[in-house]
Lab assay of single mutants.
Amino acid sequence: MTVLPKDIPGDSLKVTVGTANGKPGDTVTVPVTFADVAKMKNVGTCNFYLGYDASLLEVVSVDAGPIVKNAAVNFSSSASNGTISFLFLDNTITDELITADGVFANIKFKLKSVTAKTTTPVTFKDGGAFGDGTMSKIASVTKTNGSVTIDP
């Protein structure tokens, strides 16, 4: 049996954390987006972790974005102690894959008090994996961190 590389060099799934701005007490939304989904033969499963400074940001909610089908079954998240974990699994293993680019999740943060303008990162942590529509590992994932700026 011969195994051929399935990824064209330079191609990767792009996962990007967005940015937001606000004043202390505001609730802002930071999107997590996927790009080049079709090039990577869709997404059938993924789990990953984001870190944030809990002294500056309070997670209000984490909701599935419009590219997630049947989110009540296929999407899960949790947030505590400065870490947000995400889990997606197409429970049907074929019919509810992520097949389009767009917003995977929206994180709502309540901004805490600061004395001066502060930009705090929302960054990928170690761990996690992504699988394509056949549940094979997506070897190349380009992750881009985001941030939230609090301006009193």
Rank of each mutant, 00 (worst) to 15 (best):
T120G: 06
F48D: 04
D26Q: 11
L50S: 07
A79T: 15
D63V: 09
T149V: 15
F75Q: 07
N47Y: 01
T83H: 14
F104Y: 14
D36Y: 09
D7Q: 12
K125G: 01
N106D: 05
E96N: 00
D63F: 07
V30I: 13
L56K: 05
G127F: 00
F124S: 04
I67F: 10
D26S: 12
K110Y: 02
V15F: 01
V15N: 08
G44I: 13
V122E: 06
G146M: 04
T144H: 05
V28E: 10
P9W: 10
P121F: 03
D132K: 02
D101F: 04
P121G: 07
V68I: 11
I67C: 12
P31N: 07
D53A: 10
T142I: 07
K125S: 02
N106T: 06
K112F: 01
I138H: 12
V43T: 10
V59C: 08
P152R: 15
V103K: 03
N106L: 06
L50Q: 08
F109A: 01
A38K: 11
T94N: 01
S136F: 15
G25M: 14
M135P: 00
A20S: 11
V59H: 08
K108E: 06
V114F: 05
D53L: 09
P24A: 10
G102H: 01
N145I: 04
D11G: 13
F109S: 03
L87T: 00
T99H: 07
A38L: 13
F124Y: 02
P121W: 03
S12M: 08
K125N: 02
S78W: 15
D26T: 12
L4R: 11
D151C: 15
V37S: 12
M40E: 08
S78L: 15
G44H: 02
N145T: 05
T134I: 13
I8R: 09
A72Y: 13
T16M: 12
Y49P: 00
L87D: 01
T45F: 01
K143A: 00
S80Y: 06
G10T: 09
I8F: 13
A79I: 15
F109Q: 03
V59Q: 11
A116N: 06
T45N: 00
F86E: 02
T16H: 10
T92Y: 00
T142R: 08
G127H: 04
M135L: 03
D26R: 12
V59F: 11
S85P: 03
D90V: 05
S80Q: 14
S113D: 07
